[in-house]
Design a protein around this nucleic acid. Structure first.
Lengths: 190, 190, 190, 190
DNA sequence: CATGAATGAGATTTCATTCAT
DNA sequence: GATGAATGAAATCTCATTCAT
């Protein structure tokens, strides 16, 4: 089963760096050191392989987000946790993280394809998390009275912009992390 | 001549929504209401068409950024101008703007392909603008003493995250714009 | 009318160096410094252009061969004249000469296309000339009793081999010419 | 594996009768009774197929020429062997032999493409063989004092003229062979 | 005469996928 | 599980030719 893992690893890497359409099954088989038909033994096809990868990536991601504590001392701690979570996944699995932040390949965009579904769901989850959090913080007087949905959009944009910035891998990721948290604190906490 | 413009328009739209590899020359010709070979009369090939589009988009973009005034009353005005500029281009030309914020198709990633070059250059221009601006603002006491390069990365991430958020078109873009400016002001100005 | 000549010149050059199928009408128009449609103003098409060139080349060639004197003092003089004629045309018009020695493009090989016809006719003319000549020379005792049709084939092979040897242009063509005549004399005259 | 051979056989036949540019991959696949993409499974492309064929043909040809004995009783025997070798290959593999005597397709004429290289090499090998042979024969008094390089050119021209004369297949090839040897003997041996 | 723009037909090549073993 | 060989469908691109002016 090591070979199946090789296929998945190679596919993650290639899909993240070349896109779904830009990656051929031959490239995957080469990078995975297997022959092409083996891909079809383990998966129904290229699309299925992609779907499996994304599904797994989303499940892992959602379980992390779901695991974030909701009973923190301050509301800002929840923001902090969210930022830290994303910096952690960028550091540990940059390719998967990049994939779940990408737009779904046009071909797979059937209204309820797993890919489109999950991207939508991810957005909703993050949005819910942030809106709740902001509303609570503003209510308690911890946060300045910022417009809630718009600010959620901004924070999500910053997160996705950071995930997509591939050079983050090579930059001093921890100082950016600290700067991000301070940046948000100054803006939100009054 | 009108037909050449049709081709370009169709290609911008399709490349932005499906990616370079996900778009076929046949699709482009259909959407442009021309025959396929006409694409090859006006451009050397699919890649050349893509390159021409990107080059133009970058030139337009850079000339806007270069046109931003540097002698504003406050340093924050410069930040404000930069944000406004990006919200304007998102509103006016969402597809081109999306394209110049995307990663270059792997195949074109020869170290000095126009595409890779310009993406690099864009990053440097924005980075230079922000670093200068932040340093000056901190020096004059207008801005809080934030870490300069890291904060520049954060602001760029937010901008690119916003550009890539296609639904912005349908959201109340002006309230997001105002929220963004206020958000940054609170974080930076002391 | 100068432009028509340019087209013909360019076509001769390109057909001779790249073959009929290997030459595009665009290449011809470039080398002739005209636009493509002009080729179609002067000729019915690429094939017609090729045909015209070949027809002219064959007419010129045949008129030279027909002009060779038949009432020479010796039979070997006739051989000598034939060889000299070919060395002259190689020197003066290497490309046309190459073309009339080439095989007809497969596509034009309708049984009685001018091209196929003329190639056949050329062979017959040369063959007739040589067979007559050899028969007469052997009959008069001037030539050794060689087998007539086979020897005609050999001499024709040598001539066509020389015409096709493009580097002849750069070699000392006159010493090869003399060597050829001496070579044939030693072999034939007894 | 049988199918790969079919492709090669069909390609040899078609390239020899229609030229490289005049032959389409579809024609090859039809004649080989395979589908077109199979050509691309076994070869990198049309050009690669052509190159492989020529390479093999040249290797076979060179090994035959290299195998000719150099220690014959007379120098003329060496000439005789060379002529016989060429009549043998014409009889056995007329298409390959025609191909290696043809000019290289213009497109492949990169200064050191295998095709151009081998054509050059072939010329040098034959030329070396004949010059050595003629010089030795003249030195020993076996041959008349003919000009060496020019006579080599003439003999090579005759050989290539014969190889290219496709109708040789149908003519009485053995009588032409004998005539050629006698022809050369009379001209050279004194 | 001359040309810029355009096209139908077809050539080369790629690619996801399957088959036979 | 695994593979070498094979293929249908389609993508990119070329080219001789024509049209409108």
């Amino acid at each position: 089963m090591r070979k199946k893992q090789n296929i998945i690893r190679a596919a993650i890497h290639l899909f993240a760096s070349q896109g779904f359409d830009g990656t051929t099954t031959l490239q995957i088989s080469h990078e995975a050191q297997v022959t092409e038909p083996l891909i079809y033994y383990h998966f129904k096809g290229k699309e299925d392989l992609f779907t499996c990868i994304l599904e797994k990536a989303f499940v892992d991601y959602f379980s992390l987000v779901d695991g974030l504590p909701s009973d923190t001392a301050t509301q800002f701690e929840r923001i902090e946790n969210l930022i830290n979570l994303h910096f952690d996944v960028i550091a540990e699995r940059p390719d998967e993280t990049f994939l779940i932040t990408s737009t779904c390949p046009a071909k797979l965009n059937d209204l309820d394809h797993i890919c489109a579904n999950n991207i939508e769901r991810q957005r909703n989850v993050l949005n819910g998390y942030l809106c709740d959090n902001l509303t609570a913080g503003i209510g308690s007087g911890e946060f300045a009275p910022v417009p809630v949905p718009e600010t959620a959009v901004l924070i999500m944009a910053m997160i996705s912009g950071l995930v997509r910035r591939r050079s983050l891998k090579y930059e001093d990721i921890d100082s950016v992390r600290r700067a991000a948290i301070d940046f948000l604190r100054r803006s939100l906490v009054q």
